[in-house]
Design a protein around this nucleic acid. Structure first.
Length: 437
RNA sequence: GACCCCUUCGUCUAGCGGUUAGGACACAUCCCUUUCACGGAUGCGACACGAGUUCGAUUCUCGUAGGGGUCGCCA
């Protein structure tokens, strides 16, 4: 029987890292086994679910590159894939329970499922066999007085209807799984194979919730300038190890290596620094054009624009090894795009402390003005010549030029900056900087 | 409170009876260097505790402690 797995989010808010990783593991398992990955939106609680949240979750999944074979936007043989549209199916299933005498209605109209009250064992791919003693909990409500259904009921009904073979979900569901199995049995159905995956915790060990740093996919990752591949890679390694030398692995490698039984049973803490490291790794291997494509919205957000894509691409590419997030890009490249960039005060003060600096900068400018051509090499040669004439090291001039051309004390090579902005702007900027001394 | 899961460097983890307990991130130092970075090298740093099994426990069993989860007409 071919594998069928699903990600079943409740659209009560943004896609959360925990949910994203649950989706990721399901996706990995489906792709690895050649199975089917289904997206099902569990929006049975009209009071809490919103269409915006639903759209946001879909947007987040797409951004991560998790495509589904059945579900919203593409349909499939087991639709509809929004539980809010499946009431008839649930009514029919409830009828079966009624016929079997397994439910009863409360005074106010709520319907409860009679637990079998037998010992129930969950055979879990991650946790092993977990046996729950006959319960003493009150019977479980499956339908509200208003006719809408409760999670446990619709979740099981849909897993039967959609013929799920495996269920990868957060470990927070483990303690309730016996209820689901009880329901499967009541329907005369065979439960899927469960795999309860560990939770992602905050650095302090508390449960990660919507407000916590690094929890919301759109806010903490998409908008911060992470690359989807980096997040995909990092999240995979939280709760599972491919046992390879390298940790930076492509989707194809991760998919091939994925092993459900190797998923850990202990929770993992989210490590911001490591997630940034992963992103930096992916960022620096992007070519200039791809980097610019990803950088566009971040540069635009800071009001930076340009006429020549090639120069802009070269500019962002020149600082690719200095950033961890795309959102950091503007502060590293803004001076490539404008002539009125600010001179950083502390850097200026430091440079002015040496009275000879103004003369050195002026000499460098004059030498640059006479360069025969304009390449990184010729810029370098011109500075070197000027330095030699004044009997100083080129290293004494470079910081001055860097400051003149960028207003900063850090950045790509001075020759790279000069080459990219061209001779005219280089000379103008030197003049402007000289005015500061 | 009851029940369930978990416990190796600060963090992610390798380990599946005998290892100098390995790697990655972070951190520190050094090297490289026109800056900031990258990169390279080195260092710091862990088996929660107590019993038991065993010739021998990080590894198996039990207990304790700690952490997490579940006990909804939320999902």
């Amino acid at each position: 029987m071919s594998v069928r797995v699903r990600f079943a989010p409740s659209p009560t808010g943004d896609l959360h890292v925990g949910g994203a990783r649950t989706a990721l593991f399901n996706w990995l398992f489906a792709r690895k086994t050649g199975g089917t990955f289904i997206l099902r939106v569990e929006d049975t609680d009209g009071a809490r679910n919103t269409a915006e949240a639903s759209a946001g979750i879909i947007k987040g999944l797409r951004w991560l590159g998790l495509d589904w074979d059945e579900g919203p936007e593409i349909g499939g043989p087991c639709g509809p894939y929004f539980q809010s549209q499946r009431k008839d199916i649930y009514d029919a299933y409830l009828k079966r329970l009624e016929d079997a005498g397994r439910v009863y209605t409360e005074e106010n109209g709520a319907v409860r499922f009679k637990f079998s009250r037998t010992a129930i064992t969950v055979h879990d791919l991650v946790c092993g066999d977990v046996t729950f003693a006959p319960t003493e909990e009150p019977d479980m409500t499956v339908r509200r007085p208003d006719g809408s259904y409760i999670f446990h009921f619709v979740n099981v009904v849909d897993d039967i209807e959609m013929r799920m073979t495996h269920v990868f979900r957060g470990e927070d569901h483990l303690s309730n799984t016996w209820k689901h199995i009880d329901l499967f049995h009541a329907f005369g159905a065979t439960p899927p194979i469960y795999a309860h995956i560990p939770l992602i915790l905050n650095p302090d060990g508390t449960k990660m919730s919507k407000r916590d740093e690094g929890s919301a996919i759109e806010h903490s990752y998409m908008n911060a300038g992470y690359l989807p591949d980096a997040v995909f890679n990092y999240l995979c390694l939280l709760g599972w190890t491919p046992k390879t030398e390298a940790e930076k692995l492509s989707r194809a490698e991760l998919t091939a290596l994925f092993d459900a039984e190797a998923i850990h049973s202990s929770n993992a803490k989210f490590d911001l620094k490591k997630s940034l490291w992963f992103n930096a790794q992916y960022l620096r291997e992007l070519n200039a054009d791809d980097l610019l494509r990803h950088a566009r919205p971040f540069l635009a957000a800071r009001g930076l624009s340009w006429a020549d894509d090639a120069v802009a691409a070269a500019a962002v590419h020149s600082v690719r090894e200095k950033i961890s997030l795309l959102a950091e890009l503007p502060e590293w490249v803004h001076y490539f795009f404008r002539e009125d960039f600010p001179f950083e005060a502390d850097v200026l003060a430091k440079l002015k402390a040496r009275p000879e600096n103004a003369g050195l900068l002026k000499a460098a400018g004059e030498s640059l003005a006479q360069a025969a051509e304009w390449s990184e090499q010729s810029v370098h040669d011109a500075v070197e010549a000027a330095a030699r004439t004044l009997n100083v090291k080129p290293g004494a001039m470079m910081p001055l030029l860097r400051f003149a051309l960028s207003g900063q004390s850090r950045g790509p090579g001075v020759t790279t900056i000069a080459h990219l902005i061209g001779r005219e702007k280089t000379l103008t900027r030197i003049e402007r900087a000289l005015g500061q001394f």
